[in-house]
Write a protein that binds this DNA or RNA. Structure first.
Lengths: 109, 109
DNA sequence: GCTTTATATCGCAATATTACGATGTTTCTA
DNA sequence: TAGAAACATCGTAATATTGCGATATAAAGC
């Protein structure tokens, strides 16, 4: 086991779960926040700002890139990362719809 | 290792990561959607509706409960689960603010 | 071409997650 | 009070994640 049964769920459920999973780590949230603040992309600054090893940061960036939440382009010696607008919009739409489904506390538990 | 370095991050970052992690599984998204649709709580119906074993569903419910995203009350023999309004509102606020930080594609990568 | 700088990848150890059968626990009913 | 129904918990196997040191790779400048 230890393997999620993706066949059982809808594509939307799997997609949203994948996106959430990619963000579900404090380091990756911190990375995204840094990108959002600087608007313009950042790179190895992260290693200094967060207290994690270069290999670890690189790995987190890779996961965000795999989920297509961020994208990177070579900028000389370093690499410039920024938000992938397409995925971000998708996320806003999917998550927004999901969260909005809750209609207040119409008595229950 | 295999242990997240929570000391390094802010409480907000850790909290948001924990909430996202609790939702970052297709089964748990499916469970939440069912609760949102039925508004009124559900229980063992999930075992039939999703194709997972009772023990597995119970475990997923426990994780959602630990994250305080849902809450359950004893309803005779079965248990009634529903959204925890407080956490849901917190989630809407935190996630909303996070997602809204992105200001379009002001040229970068 | 060699060196420096900036990232990526590999390999590993520690720990976490996912799924499930088996077994406990609690509550209602006969 | 014994039995059934509905969940929860335990134990376990398979796999995934986290973090890092060491090493590889790529671009720029000399």
């Amino acid at each position: 086991m230890g393997l999620t049964k993706t066949e059982i769920f809808t594509d939307e459920q799997n997609q949203l779960a994948t996106l959430l999973k990619a963000m579900a780590h404090p380091a990756r949230i911190a990375i995204l926040q840094r990108i959002l603040i600087s608007n313009t992309c950042i790179c190895g600054d992260l290693v200094e700002e967060l207290g994690l090893a270069q290999a670890t940061i690189s790995q987190h960036l890779k996961e965000l890139k795999n989920a297509e939440i961020i994208q990177g382009t070579i900028e000389g010696v370093s690499i410039c990362y920024c938000i992938n607008p397409k995925t971000w919009k998708l996320l806003e739409k999917q998550l927004g719809a999901f969260l909005a489904e809750y209609k207040g506390e119409t008595s229950c538990c």
